[in-house]
Amino acid sequence: MIESSTRVLDPVRGFISSVVSPVYLLAESPYLLSGAIGDVVATQDQLLVRNQQLERQILELSQISQQYVALKSENDRLRGLLGSQGRLPYDVLIAELVGIIPDTNTFQIIIDKGSNAGVKPGLAVLDAQGLFGQVIEVGRFTSRVLLVNDPDHAVPVRVNRNGVRGIAGGTGEVDALVLENVSVTADIVEGDLLETSGLGGRFPPGYPVGTVVSVVVEATSAYAQVLLRPTAALDRSRHVLVVFGPNQQQDPAAQQEQTPPREQLSDQQQYQSQEPTP
């Protein structure tokens, strides 16, 4: 019980988790192996089809990113007019899922990057579609991530359409989040997209969290019951991104030369720039 209220034992846990992380790898090996075999024995036709799909996807994405550059510069100009700070792109680190905590009542996963790659407790984790969770424990080579749908998890969000703020809590169901303490008069309708608001400083702002699937207003309650479907594929994604958010940004010297998108920095560079935090 010392553990839940203080962080005294964190180094102990971190050390033990470095020792036991191979167990996760062993348990995961059937999946890794079947994936590897699948890669080796894929027929040429399959590879060709896959290649075509990927090329098409690259084309679409590069089209979008062209627009993104224009929109970004416009946004920066407008923000400059308003006198507010421009947004920096964040550093990300690609990690792979190597284990799942075997308890039906909690949603936590193990990823294959730890303190040796600069991961720290509290960092946000994304997958290709949206917010995935946050790092809660770091070992040398692995870290543990609490998913957004865990009952113990909550994240400050805002409605993408009009900026109404709220807090999205986990429910323990894989496909549902709940927006907590929403007043019945709040302007939230079915289909709204909720993104991280960045309030509290733990999660970087602007990443999608979930879409509203139902808004139930009961006459007897002062609060509306708003259910969300998480945008991230919480039970399927194997590759996730660890985001170094606003508080974990690199040192100022590195920030000034931030012309290349941070995603293109190699792990090596990220690791170096993470180290000299004062």
Binding site: E3, L9, I16, S17, I101, R144
Partner: peptide, 10 residues
């Protein structure tokens, strides 16, 4: 070891 593996109180 099991506590850390299963993410349960030490």
């Amino acid at each position: 070891l099991v506590d850390v593996l299963y993410a349960e109180p030490l």
